[in-house]
Write a protein that binds this DNA or RNA. Sequence first.
DNA 1: CTGAAAGCGCTTACAG
DNA 2: CTGAAAGCGCTTACAG
Lengths: 332, 332
Amino acid sequence: MKITIKDIAKISGVSTTTVSQILNNKGQRFSDETRRRVLKAVEEYDYNPDYFAKNMINRESKTIGMIVPDVTDLFFSKVIEGVEAYLTKKDYMILLCNSNHSHEMEKDYIKQLLNRSVAGILLASPNSLELETSLKSPYILIDRGLNTRTEGNLLVKEYDGSYESVQYLINLGHRKIGMLTNESGYYEMSERYEAYCQCLKDNNISYNETYLEDGPVTIEGGYQAAKRVLARTDITALCCGNDQMAIGAYRAAYESGLHIPNDLSIIGFDNLEISEYLNPPLTTVAQPAFEIGYTAASYLFQSINQPEAKVPNKTFGTKFIVRGSTSLVDKI
Amino acid sequence: MKITIKDIAKISGVSTTTVSQILNNKGQRFSDETRRRVLKAVEEYDYNPDYFAKNMINRESKTIGMIVPDVTDLFFSKVIEGVEAYLTKKDYMILLCNSNHSHEMEKDYIKQLLNRSVAGILLASPNSLELETSLKSPYILIDRGLNTRTEGNLLVKEYDGSYESVQYLINLGHRKIGMLTNESGYYEMSERYEAYCQCLKDNNISYNETYLEDGPVTIEGGYQAAKRVLARTDITALCCGNDQMAIGAYRAAYESGLHIPNDLSIIGFDNLEISEYLNPPLTTVAQPAFEIGYTAASYLFQSINQPEAKVPNKTFGTKFIVRGSTSLVDKI
DNA sequence: CTGAAAGCGCTTACAG
DNA sequence: CTGAAAGCGCTTACAG
């Protein structure tokens, strides 16, 4: 049987009011003697106020929900790490939901989280989300462009980052530049794709549809997509939707007998820790995953504690990192 | 203002008892008419029973806590995925804690989780843990050998897996076999190390301390450790504590001008998705991370619902996977 | 400086 | 078939 505040009150010979006030550092000053007696009993019996009873009154669950499309995705796991790092300091805990890229699951999770009275929600999903407006608890959107909200959005300069990488390839002399993207209309992917198109245009390079391939944003997805595009084209460079896809593209290139970067230049997006260790190290567009998570958590925290205040938006810059997977074009 | 059961009762003209019973499918049969009225009001006002009030009575938080040493670790994120996959089906949610390999943090988190009345705890930590016995909620230990508990342990045949990989190298003619391990006495690492020693012994190969290196079980850790051991020895093969370390070792090898596998054979442990995509693909010892998580969750669930029943232990086998990072020894 | 009592939003014997 | 009342374990005006 769990020990309750009544037990502590009885043991230390005071009322529950007193115990409660002392434990919460509230109310009037109590005599040192009383305080000591109560604290001693608490200590001795290892009393902890019941979480549910306490919350029924305080409504401070100190819990937030976080929904990600894939926990094993290296980008998102880094974001989670950032979120956790911030929230732990504040004694908050995070209810983690893995939506498996499913929009249905996301909606389900949001409902469940709301039922659990979480203090706020962190939604790291690239999907557009119509039910946003019905969300009555504070929330922050990570990496989301497709929404009508004007505050609490954390974005990354997907477009600029992607543009820069394509321009880099063009400057190296590449003209036949492929791109691996994602079919399902993910916001970031669209941005990166748009930048690709625009950059070609700005450089008077004609757009070639066969240079494009779709696939899941995973290693395997990148492998399959790259395989297809390499089989039917003679591209000299390939922009991958993200680093994971680039990793898959490496293998596709090897299997096609292509040497990176001599025969094929490859560029990723994310700058995962692992990308630096690939062979050759991957040229990529860095985005600050940990910082994104950390900032998202801090904004949410702020939004929970000052519901009236407007939550700022934030756009993170990217950084283009040249490594060994890109080189001057080698063939015409 | 949140809508309560009283509101629903008033709106549908019945008592709160009736509303509660209908919503929980309990008690006696109610007239269809009453049921319809109540359900309609619930629907219309989007009523959801308060999580805390409900739990104060039912004590079914349907929440478990999970502690991992590192969310960004590819092995653990896969385990999390498995846990999530099982628990979601059961309408449970998981409170995720990232201990950063810190034993102190683990203890803190356990305390916090207990205070929150989680239904159970999943502890994925390679640390030994003295306070286990004081854990009064159901729990399952993942990947833990150093404990005195006789049930609810999920283990992997670390020793056998490691032994097999070392023996494989020896069969290829290797005699100068290095090993990258972890200093902090992690159970799995010790097992793998013990197997390494025993296998050498069984093959009458003398143990050479300089072939050993310690490091964090990360890519960077593997890189640094491999760099050190390659700088001072002429090993022809290297067993890495896990795949992440192996990835780091790849780069160390390249920087030392060594070709894998011709100059240096490398073996990992885990079989991460990425390992197959490395260049060359990594020979490694596979362990079923997703399945481990999934099983752990199912055992915990069982243990929550039948507290008296003994929770089984389970030991997962490993599978040795030969890929391109190992070859016959090339130099004497 | 301290306590009796009301109340948070539910569920559940119990009575009718 | 349905409701009044007690109770879960807390906190908080309020009164003294």
